[in-house]
Amino acid sequence: MQWSDALGKLHGRYPGSPRIVSLVPSLTELLIALGLGAQLTGRTGFCVHPRAALRGIPKLGGTKGFDRERLRALQPTHVLVNIDENRRDEVAALADFVPHVVVTHPLEARDNLDLYRLLGGIFDREQEAAALCAAFEREWTALAEVAALLPRQQVLYLIWRDPWFSVARDTYISRMLAAAGWETLPAVSAQRYPQIELAEAVRDAEIVFLASEPYPFRERDRQRLLAEMAGHCWQLIDGEMVSWYGSRAIMGLAYLRRLRLGLSQSARN
C-alpha cells in the first residue's frame, strides 16, 4: 500500500528501521505521539514539544536556514517538511542525499486525519494513527456540537504588532477558528497574512484575539489595548493550539471548545 503526500508523491511503508529528521515542530510532536521517538534523529530548534522526549535529539537550526551539512551527516532515510514552514529551494536540495522527503501541507483541521494516516502508514504505526484519528473525531464532534448552539461571530486574530498582521480565511488558523464558529477578519484578503490598520480592523470584530505566537502577546499587551481601545473584547489565545497541526490539533479542538464556552458564559454575565 502507498500513501500520497502534499505534492502527490507516493510513499510506501518503509521496510527497515527509519532515521527520521523533522524540520517542522508540529510534525516532530506528531512523531512522538506515533511512538517514533527512537527513530527521530534530528529536529529544528523550534521543535520543543514534548520537551522530555526530545532531549538529546540533535538540533539543526530553524525551519528555514537549517544546517544542511549537519543534516547530511545524520544520514536520514526520511525528512519531513511543510510547504508553508520550509523554503522550497532548501527542501529541493535535500533530494541530492535524502532517499525520502515527505512534504506536508494541512490546510484545515480535518486534513490532520490524512496526515496521521500518511505517517502512520509510512512508518508502520497504523494502529497508533487510527487511535489519533478516533481521538480527533471525538473532539471534532464535541466542538461542532458547541458551535452549533452559539451564534457565529466575527473575530480579528492578531499574530504581530508594529506593524499589525492578521490571518486570511484560507489559512489553517482561520479554518480552525471557523470550526468553533469564529469567522476571521478581514473577510477577503489577497495575502494569507495581511498587514492591517488596527483601528479600522477592530470595528467589525466581536472579539480580538492576541495570539501567543509568532509574536508573544502577553497580559500587559491586552491591558494596554483595553485602555487605548475600549469597547472591544481583547482576549489572549494560545497560538500553538490554533496553528499547530498534527497531534496538537486534537488538544486544539478541545481548547477551542472550552474557550468558546468560557467566552460565551462571560458575555452573559
Rank of each mutant, 00 (worst) to 15 (best):
D170Y: 10
C233R: 13
A205F: 10
I250G: 11
A52L: 04
G239L: 11
L256R: 03
L236G: 13
G252C: 05
L198P: 04
E85H: 07
R13L: 09
A147P: 06
R110Y: 12
A190R: 11
I173W: 08
V48C: 02
A52E: 15
T171A: 11
A187H: 06
S22M: 12
E139Q: 14
P151C: 04
I83P: 03
L31I: 05
G16C: 12
G262T: 08
P25V: 01
Y157L: 05
V24H: 04
A109M: 03
L185Q: 10
V242S: 14
R68A: 00
C233H: 12
E213T: 08
Q154P: 00
A6P: 14
R117K: 05
W160C: 07
A144M: 07
H232I: 00
G239E: 09
L263G: 04
A142E: 10
A227D: 13
Y14H: 15
L236A: 12
A6D: 09
R248W: 05
G231P: 03
A205T: 02
L210M: 07
G37A: 11
K9S: 06
V98W: 06
G8F: 10
L177D: 03
L115K: 08
P15I: 00
P25H: 01
L185Y: 13
L149W: 05
L118N: 14
L143W: 02
A135T: 05
A6S: 14
H78Y: 01
I250Y: 08
R218M: 14
S189H: 12
S26G: 13
T41V: 15
G121N: 03
N82D: 14
E183G: 03
V91Y: 01
Y255M: 04
E128Q: 14
E85G: 13
S264Q: 12
Q127Y: 00
A230Q: 11
R220V: 08
A168R: 03
W234Q: 01
D67L: 00
T141A: 12
A187E: 15
L31V: 12
I57A: 13
W160E: 08
S26F: 07
S212D: 00
D221M: 06
N86G: 09
Q195W: 05
E69Q: 10
E183Y: 09
L115A: 12
I20Q: 05
E108I: 00
I32A: 08
D170W: 08
W234Y: 03
I20S: 12
D96V: 01
N82I: 04
A130T: 03
P163I: 09
P25I: 01
V202K: 06
L10S: 13
A147F: 07
V102L: 04
A144D: 10
A199D: 09
L23A: 05
A135L: 13
L113C: 02
A92Q: 15
L256F: 11
M176C: 15
R87C: 00
L198N: 02
L156M: 07
Q154H: 15
D114G: 07
N112A: 02
F46M: 08
A95K: 12
D84H: 15
V98Q: 04
D238V: 05
A95R: 15
R110F: 02
F123M: 02
L225E: 09
Q195V: 10
I57E: 03
V103M: 10
Q39K: 01
D204N: 14
G181I: 07
Q223T: 02
